[in-house]
């Protein structure tokens, strides 16, 4: 093939994309939709439930302070430390619950796999930036709050190419 022909072929392939919609996602205005409510783990079955692995959610009424998540994290990121809590819970005699440092967490979710009491799951909230390192440390109270992440956009493929669109369902 001559080089002139090759050049025109390349130009033709490229110029088609002037008319096609862009694939770019305009992030803060448009957010991606994830499946489920975040990664969860079912200790009875021994398998996880698919979902995005963002920041954790801690259920105070289920956590027993057994430290299994903290022990798991010791060899991974050392992000979880057990801290005293003010409130008293029947199932939590020691009164300790995990506190997670998101400056260290790698979001592997193995702490969720380690929890046998359905107390620690992950959510699809990934917007965790903070001005200081101290603000990245989430106390048990902060972890118990359900995040309000609203992702609506999914990849849409039609005859004109791929783009992002709002999921109607």
């Amino acid at each position: 093939m001559s080089s002139i022909e090759g050049m025109f072929k390349a130009l033709e392939a490229g110029s088609k994309h002037v008319l096609i919609k862009r694939f770019t996602l305009f992030y803060p205005e448009q957010k991606l939709k994830f499946v489920g409510d975040g990664y969860q783990f079912d200790p009875k079955e021994g398998v996880g439930i698919a979902g995005y692995r963002g920041r954790h959610i801690l259920f105070h009424d289920k956590c027993t302070g057994c430290q299994l998540c903290s022990i798991m994290c010791e060899g991974i990121a050392e992000a979880i430390s057990m801290v005293k809590i003010d409130k008293e819970y029947k199932q939590n005699k020691k009164g300790i619950m995990p506190q997670i440092d998101y400056g260290k967490c790698v979001f592997c979710g193995l702490c969720v796999d380690a929890c046998p009491f359905y107390a620690l799951f992950m959510t699809d909230d990934y917007e965790l930036s903070a001005y200081t390192k101290e603000h990245l440390i989430y106390t048990p109270d902060q972890l118990s709050i359900k995040p309000n992440y609203k992702g609506e956009y999914v990849i849409d493929i039609n005859e004109f190419g791929a783009t992002h669109k709002k999921d109607i369902k």
Binding site: V35, G36, G38, Y39, V47, G48, I49, A50, G51, Y52, R53, V106, F107, C108, G109, L110, D113, M122
Partner: peptide
């Protein structure tokens, strides 16, 4: 969609995978 992370999936474990596909 499958693993819950965009790059470092930590999805394979000895004995299978962490979670089923949605």
């Amino acid at each position: 969609l499958a693993s819950g992370a965009r790059v470092t999936h930590a999805y394979f474990v000895p004995g299978g995978v962490r979670n089923d596909l949605p």
